[in-house]
Structures are given as structure tokens and as C-alpha cells.
């Protein structure tokens, strides 16, 4: 009897304490939690769960329909012998090697031009930006025709200039660079705008001081402009790299990864393994490895491009 009374008493007491705590807690925090609830749900369901499940897939063989099959490190063992995996990495680097310098060169050139005192700056800027807003599918279908070997406009211009017709998309050596050129044409507008903002933020006094000393154009560009827009440069390099590893629709529509797998990109290979062959475990492992490579490359680029601020 006594025990029971005591127990009820204790229960009431703890409930009181709990009530005080929750009341205090709730007053300040309840609204905040309610408002971020969508994020927490979204995060758990669409980010944390897939991310966690990726680690399950890494060690399994699975075609969704039948039972999952434990293969241990089999997927990783397979990947290191997979010629196409390394081919996709090499192709991506080929893409980046053409894409990044071209992108930076053209974007910086156009931004420099637009940074002068000119009329119609807004017009030129919006023209250069136009391909950015148009879907990659459109650009790819269009350039597929422009690149055509016999009827394509580009080869016609080449013939007019007395140059031989180039097998833009049919040669394993040229196909990936061709895609990189097209991607540059599509994306350069963003980087023109980014560089333009960067250039406009360079203090005018620096140039005036250099002019007083009689510095050459090149000197001003290499010693003032380039260091000052270094953060923009880093951003352009990183964004282009991520774009390169996400390359999908261009090879998918134009070449299907060919000729001789020379345009097989990282995402296209994941897509083929996952949704053509239904090798879910292997495709997830590929995704994991590619993601690790993206991180590594971006990290190295940071170290390489990032400079200490000028004194």
C-alpha cells in the first residue's frame, strides 16, 4: 500500500519535472523545430538513408528483383580490374584538360572585353549567356548536327578555309575534346558573368598606380588582375571539374559513349551498369569511387590554385 502511494507520488513528481522541462524547452524551441521539421524528414529520407544504404550496396550483388547477395569486397576487387572504370576516369580527365583551360581563357577574354567602357554591354552579356539557360539536350542535338562529318556546318567552314574535314564525333581521339568544346560553348556565359563581377571588384587605384609606374598591359594583367580574381578562378575550376564528373546527357545523346568507349563518362557508366544491366551493387560502388575521386581532385585543385593573399 505504502509502496504504491510512494510510487504514484514519485510518478507525479517526475511528471511535474518533465512538464517544467518541456514547457521551458517548448517555449523557445518548439517553433524552431516545427519549422525545420521538413528538412529533418527530407534529410533522413532522401539523403541519410540513401547515403547509408550505399554502404550496404557496396558489399552486395543485387538486381533489385532477386535476393541481395553478399560479395564482401568483390565489387571493389572487380572495379580494380574493370578497364571501363579506368577508361571513364581517363575520359573525364581528357574532358577537363580541354574544357577548363578553354573555359577560363574564353571567359576571361570576354569578361575583359565587356569590362571596358562599351555600349550594349548588357546585350552582349545576355547573348553570351543564352546557351546556359537552354537545356543540355537541345544543345547536344544541335551540335550533333553541327559536328556531322559530311553535312555539318563546322566541317563546311573547315573546307572553305582549306582544311580537311574532321571526324569530330567518330574518331576516338577527337570525340571527347569535341564534347568538351561544346560544353564550353554552353557554359562559358556563367563564367563570363562571374569573371566580370570579379574584375569589377578589383580596386581601380591598383591600375592607376601601375599606370604611373608605366607598367605594360601584360604586366598589369598578370600582376594585378590575375591575383585579384584568384578566388573566382578557383570557383571556375572547381565548378568545371564537378560538371565534368557529372557529364551525362552529352555523350548519352551524341555518341552513346562511343567510339570505342572514348566518351564514356563517369555518370554514363554508372547509368549503364545500374539501369541497363541492373548491377545495383556494382553501380553504387562505381558511384562511391567516382565521388571519392571528385573529392580528391577538388581538394588538390584547392591546394594548387589557392594562393596566399597579396601583402
Amino acid at each position: 500500500m505504502l509502496k504504491q502511494v510512494r510510487r504514484t507520488f514519485l510518478l507525479i513528481k517526475t511528471m511535474k519535472i518533465l512538464k517544467i522541462i518541456t514547457a521551458k524547452f517548448a517555449k523557445n524551441d518548439r517553433i524552431g523545430y516545427a519549422l525545420v521539421m521538413p528538412y529533418i524528414v527530407h534529410f533522413c529520407l532522401f539523403i541519410a538513408f540513401p547515403f547509408g544504404f550505399c554502404f550496404v550496396l557496396l558489399f552486395h550483388k543485387w538486381d533489385i528483383v532477386s535476393e541481395m547477395q553478399w560479395v564482401g569486397a568483390g565489387n571493389f576487387y572487380h572495379i580494380f580490374q574493370d578497364k571501363l572504370f579506368f577508361k571513364a576516369i581517363r575520359n573525364t580527365f581528357t574532358f577537363l584538360l580541354v574544357h577548363i583551360p578553354l573555359q577560363i581563357g574564353i571567359a576571361l577574354f570576354l569578361a575583359e572585353m565587356l569590362n571596358q567602357k562599351i555600349k550594349f554591354r548588357g546585350f552582349f552579356r545576355s547573348v553570351y549567356f543564352m546557351p546556359v539557360v537552354v537545356s543540355g539536350v537541345v544543345i547536344t542535338i544541335l551540335w550533333d548536327q553541327l559536328y556531322a562529318q559530311d553535312t555539318g556546318v563546322i566541317n563546311m567552314i573547315f573546307v572553305q578555309l582549306g582544311l580537311p574535314k574532321m571526324p569530330w564525333l567518330t574518331s576516338p581521339y577527337l570525340a571527347m575534346p569535341s564534347i568538351a568544346i561544346m560544353a564550353t560553348w554552353k557554359n562559358v556565359g556563367i563564367y563570363v558573368v562571374l569573371f566580370l563581377v570579379g574584375l569589377q571588384n578589383v580596386p581601380k587605384q591598383l591600375y592607376e598606380a601601375a599606370d604611373l609606374e608605366g607598367a605594360s598591359h601584360w604586366y598589369k594583367f598578370s600582376r594585378i588582375t590575375l591575383p585579384m580574381i584568384n578566388p573566382t578562378m578557383l570557383m571556375v575550376v572547381i565548378l568545371s571539374t564537378i560538371n565534368g564528373f557529372n557529364l551525362f546527357i552529352e555523350p548519352y545523346v551524341m555518341t552513346g559513349g562511343g567510339p570505342m568507349n572514348s566518351t564514356l563518362s563517369a555518370v554514363l557508366y554508372i547509368y549503364n551498369q545500374g539501369f541497363y544491366f541492373y548491377h545495383m551493387g556494382y553501380a553504387a560502388t562505381l558511384g562511391f569511387c567516382f565521388a571519392a575521386i571528385v573529392f580528391l581532385v577538388v581538394f588538390l585543385q584547392r591546394k594548387l590554385v589557392e594562393q596566399k593573399p597579396l601583402d
Binding site: 539523403i47 538513408f49 547515403f51 544504404f53 550505399c54 557529372n246 545500374g274 562505381l286 558511384g287
Partner: peptide, 14 residues
Amino acid sequence: MLPLQIILIPLYIL
């Protein structure tokens, strides 16, 4: 910063 490649397959399975 999460790369798309890592999420793609598990998200499809979900």
C-alpha cells in the same frame, strides 16, 4: 557538397 554519383543508385532503389 554531396556528389550526385553517391546518391543516385540508392535513391532510385528508395
